[in-house]
Each structure stands twice: as C-alpha cells, then as structure tokens.
Write a protein that binds this DNA or RNA. Sequence first.
DNA 1: TATGAATGAGCATTCATTCAT
DNA 2: TATGAATGAATGCTCATTCAT
Lengths: 203, 203, 203, 203
Amino acid sequence: MKPLSSKAEARIHAQRRRILLAAQQCFIEYGFHGASMASIAETAGMSAGLIYRYFESKNAIILAIVRQQLEMLRGDLSLNRKVDLAAEIAAHYGTANAQREHGMNAALLLEISAEATRDPAVAAALDEFDDTLRTGLIDWLSRPTGSGGQGLPATLAPRRALILQCLVEGLKVRETREPDLDRTLLATALHEVVPLLLAAPRK
Amino acid sequence: MKPLSSKAEARIHAQRRRILLAAQQCFIEYGFHGASMASIAETAGMSAGLIYRYFESKNAIILAIVRQQLEMLRGDLSLNRKVDLAAEIAAHYGTANAQREHGMNAALLLEISAEATRDPAVAAALDEFDDTLRTGLIDWLSRPTGSGGQGLPATLAPRRALILQCLVEGLKVRETREPDLDRTLLATALHEVVPLLLAAPRK
Amino acid sequence: MKPLSSKAEARIHAQRRRILLAAQQCFIEYGFHGASMASIAETAGMSAGLIYRYFESKNAIILAIVRQQLEMLRGDLSLNRKVDLAAEIAAHYGTANAQREHGMNAALLLEISAEATRDPAVAAALDEFDDTLRTGLIDWLSRPTGSGGQGLPATLAPRRALILQCLVEGLKVRETREPDLDRTLLATALHEVVPLLLAAPRK
Amino acid sequence: MKPLSSKAEARIHAQRRRILLAAQQCFIEYGFHGASMASIAETAGMSAGLIYRYFESKNAIILAIVRQQLEMLRGDLSLNRKVDLAAEIAAHYGTANAQREHGMNAALLLEISAEATRDPAVAAALDEFDDTLRTGLIDWLSRPTGSGGQGLPATLAPRRALILQCLVEGLKVRETREPDLDRTLLATALHEVVPLLLAAPRK
DNA sequence: TATGAATGAGCATTCATTCAT
DNA sequence: TATGAATGAATGCTCATTCAT
C-alpha cells in the first residue's frame, strides 16, 4: 500500500462530498428507502458502481448523511455567545435550505428520527447529538449572565433545556407540515414565549 | 349483491382490525416501507393473499393506520372540558403503547410525518388533523374561563396555540429518542412552563 | 348413490348453462386467461366455489365453451339444403352476437384458435370440427345439383372446400378487426366471388 | 447523458434482439399471457431483472413483437413487382418458421389478433397494418398491367382486395391447425382460384 | 479510476382452487 | 346446495450490490 498523496486524498474527499450532496437531495425528495442508488448516482453524475468505491453500502451513506446533518444542526445552534434565541430559531424556520448545501433540512430530520427507531447506528449518532445539545443548553442556561449565559438556577436549567429542545424539534416537524406558515406570527409568538422560558419564575 | 348479515359484517370488521393491529406492529418495527406484506400477514397469522380481501393495497393499509392514529391522538387531546394540560401531556408520555391496541404511538407519528412529505393522501389526512387540532386549541385558549377555556385575548390565542402544538409534537419526537426519560423531570418542567404559555403576559 | 331425479338433472343442466353463459361473456371481454373465475362467478350471480361443483376446473369450462361454440358454428353452416352461400356468409358477418346467447362470436373463435395451439384437448375439438366441416363442404360441393349440391367434379371439390373454409375463417378474423366494415361492399364482393368458387372452370 | 458509443449501441441492439427472439419462442409456445418473464429470461439465457434494462415492461415486449411480426408480414407480401400471387401465398404456407428468426409465425398472428381485441396499442398497430396492406392491395389490383398491376376497374378492386385479404388471413389461421396440410393440394387450389379473383368478370 | 451490465433476492399483488360452515 | 373465507404458488417488477472491462 502506497501512502496516499494529499492530492489523491483531496479527490476522495471531493467525490464523497459529491455523493453525499446527491444523496441528500434524493433522500429529501424520496426518503431513505424510497431513494434508489441509481437515482443518487444519476444526481451525482456518476455511475452506480463508482459509489461503492467511496461508500461501503447504501446504509453507510445514510449514516454519513445523518452525521453530517447533525453536525450542521450543532453548528446552527451554537450557544457560545450571547444570542437572541427567539430570533435565531425564527430565522431558521423554513429558509428553503433543501437546495443549499448546508443547513439542516426539516424533512431529513424526520427521516433521520424515524430511521433511528430501527438502525442502531443512526440511533447512536442521534443520541450523542442529543446529549451534547442538551448539555450545551443546560450549560448556557445556567452560566451567569456575565459569561454569556442566562443565569438560571442549577435545578431549573435541565427542565428548561428539555422544554426548549422539544420546542425546537417540534418547530422542525411543523416546518415540514406548514412550510408557508406566517413568519410574523411565528416570530411574534417566539419572542413572546422564549423569554418566559429563559427566565426564573417570579416569586 | 346480497346485504351482508351482521355476523358477516362483524367478521369483516374483526379481520380488518386484526390486519391493522399486525400492520401497526410491523410499521413500528420496520417502518412503512421496511415492513413487507408478508411480515404483516405472518404477524396477523394469515396468508398474504387474504389481506387483499380486506384492503385494496398496502397503501390503503398505511392510510388506514394513519387515520386511526390521528383519530387516537385527537381523542387523547380532547379539550372540551377543563383540563390540567400539563398533567395531560405528561401522562401521555411514553406509556409503552406499542403493544397496546390504542394510544398514538410516537414512532408511528414520525413515520406518518415523514410519509406525508411524499404521499398526498397521508399529507391530506395530516393537514386535516392539524387544522382541527389548531382550531380546537385556539378556541379553548380564547374561550372564557367560565366556559372551560383559558380566557386569552383573541390576538394572543393563535400564537400560543402554535407554540403549544410544537411543544406537544416535539415531546412526541422526544419520546422516540428517550423512552426512559425521567418522568418527574418532565412533569415538573411541564407544570412550570405550561401555565406560563396559558397566561396572558403581565403588564 | 341415489339415481338423480330428472328434476335434479334439469337443475344441474340449468346451472351449467348459467355458468357457461357467464364464462362466454367474460372470455369474450377478457380472453380465456384474462378472465378470472371470480369474474365468471360474479357474472353468473353465484359464488366462485359453487362453480367447482359443476365444472372440474377453469380449463374444463374453457373446453365446454369451445365445444359449445363449435357446435353452434356447425349449426350455422349447415349445408343440407340448397343455400345461397354468399348471402349466408354475408348475413353472419358482424351481427352483434356477443350479447346473444347463440351464434359463434368472432373474438371467441380467435381465442379458441390461439388456445388450440397449446391445449391438446382444445386442439382435438377443433380438429374434429374442421374435419366434419370440410367433409360436409366437400360432400355438398360434389353432390349433384339435383340433390341440393353443387355438382363439382370429385377432384375439384376438396380444393374448393379448402379455399372456402379459409375464406370463411378469414372473414371471422376480419370481423374482429373491422366490426364496422361496409356490409354492402362485403355482400357485393361475396356475391361476385363465391359463385366463381362454386363453379367448375370453363374450358 | 453521454452519447452512446456505437459499440454500446450495438450491444443494446443485440440484447434486445436476444430478448425478442426468446420472447417470440415463449409467446408461440405459451401465448402472450401464459409466457412468464422468468421463462423468457431463461430462454434468453439471462436474469429476469436484466430484461427490464432493455424493455420497460412485458407489455412493451409484446408490442415490440407485434410490430416486428407485422413488419415481417408486410415484407412478405410486398406487391411492388409483378408477382405470381398464388405461388407466393402457397410458398409461405407452413414453412416452419417458428425457429427461424424471420418470417411471420401463424400462431403469433392468432395471438396478436386475439390480443388486439383487448390491448388498444396492439389494436392500433394491427389497424395500421391492415390499412397499408389493403391500400397496397387495391393499388396493385387497379394499377394497369403495364405497371406491374392487375388492371382491375376501380370499383372492383376494393372488393377483390377484401376477399384476398380474408383468404390470406384464413390461410394463416389454417396453418396453425393443419401444419401438415398437403401442399400440392393447396398450391393447386390457389393456382386455380387466385386468377379468378384477379380477373374482371366476363361479360 | 470509472462504467454500466448483470445478478438474485425480495416485493406487492393476483388467482385458481379448497373447504369449513 | 351454496357460500365466500382462506390458501399458496406464481407473476411482473425493483433494486442494492458485484464485477468484467
């Protein structure tokens, strides 16, 4: 085995990206099981056989897509800085990102969630994502306001994190059902409600 | 065409239920497309051919399951009376109802939502469900407290209904991911937060 | 085994006729293989299972239909009396006899002919029919004019019989293709040509 | 879509021919509906799945066979030159061409005719064939003898064309029933009769 | 590296036939 | 006698995967 030249490595990487991009489009349109390898190959502009040089199986592609999408979602919701959470969430709703190469697609999230109930590898990836997101949320909620957090008491933070997580996921589901939902309504609602969730209850 | 005897009708009904029950199990375990007619037949304890005496196609079974599940969910969330919404929601979480014949199954809801992005008939059923649920919620929120409602102003009710709907759906998604989630944590969180969502903002 | 009362026998006969009539309609509409036992049963207004009390199998029904149709055709072309053959043939063309209970149906003849190339029993029935028809034709052609024949020399008769048989069969085929063929054209053509085929060549 | 290399095109063509040849054999032996894709695949020496790379469906194969056979028949009966029609027709009878790759097969013609009563695409192909054949015949009959025609009056030609067409078709049917018919008898009969059909009636 | 021809297992669906009632 | 529920084998077709080129 020759060591791979960095040029060769770059090519491999590029091909994998090409395949994943095509797969993403197909999965969004037809679902994981409705999309055929042939359709992915055609979308990627390559032969079906070639895909198997870069991915072991269709399942491996699904898993790669899952990981990629979760990584994106993690990036989207980075809570390192002081954020207007309501605005962030509202901004992410329905920005037709099926075509864009980046940005978690709502339909894909459904597909992934459904697949996780069957494929243990997908479930594991989703679990890990859930954990880091929850931990991140709890940390952000409980960190002092001065450090860019919300200053919630340690007992309160996990509860609010759970609620926020559900709300965000619920919004993703809603996105697939009402892509044309009134954005102003949504933004208003979120700006009303999110602050309530981020604040400690008044005595 | 002879009129069916009530006995024959009962048998037909029973068989359809047997098939739907088996289909539900298979769909939960393998998904709509992963479950084969053969697996459904085996689960139902009958031959594959017989199923077609009671359902026109696999798609018809899927649609029947979809409608059945949505009907259940509608029943679960009936808002006709004065309810402790937080308690209701919490109580519905994760009561392992895959085996039970009734009760909306969280995994199925995912499957249904994913399928709705492709199958127009499923989408229509889901849309109708969404509409009645939303309308019901808005009505309940805006009705005066005396009539079993929450007495929210008419402008506020739609926004809170949207948020509540997302929260509930998000919880259903979460149920598939964390079936063993700490119920006390969830109940506490909901009892803290739901009242905030049901109340008009203080001046 | 009790001997059958003549009443029971009559019932059996009636049931068989009912089935055959229904089968004929279905076979004309869908072909021998396209017609299902269920469709025949429905057309006959009885259950599928009951048919098997009167016929051993679908193939037996086909064979019975074949025999029945050939018997009809034999009757249609009876050459016992002095006939105007051209007029006879022309008269039989396209008289929408699909609905009528009697009269050989052109589509069925095709179906039968095709089936004969595969089913030996059908082939045998058809062979026997062919033989009697040919023999009848030859006899009629060679019988003296005084006895209702055509008075053709014995060497000539078989050749003319062959041609006539082909012509008649060809007309049956044409009937399925051009059910709306101009009858006057056909009648004129036949009246021109048939006499030529029935006459001895001039010196 | 890359343009196909001529080599690839040739392969595709060869495979299609292989499939059609196999299908023809199976259709002759079992009929359009009796022949299974599996039997065709086995006869062609390939897997059933592969056939679908070259034909969209079984129906497409049937239609291709229909068109091919009609094209052959059209070629067989080309009337461009001065022909001895009786000899031509006689020569075509029963030359066991089931095995040969070319030459209209009589059994297939029956199958096609029967299928035309149900499948509109087959009916259309057959109609078109009928039309061109009839037109060709009429033209040939009415063209002056000097131009290779038969010089029949314009009013007479259509009638004789109809009769000739029926006779030829009837002979094809007979071919399936009496493959061993005495050829001399047939040739003699045709040579006696065809000239009568091609001549204007004597005053 | 890249192709796409080829496979074979699997799928939904149909249907002649049987049999308990 | 009559029903129609039930079976099981077969059918047309799809698709992930392999492999000769």
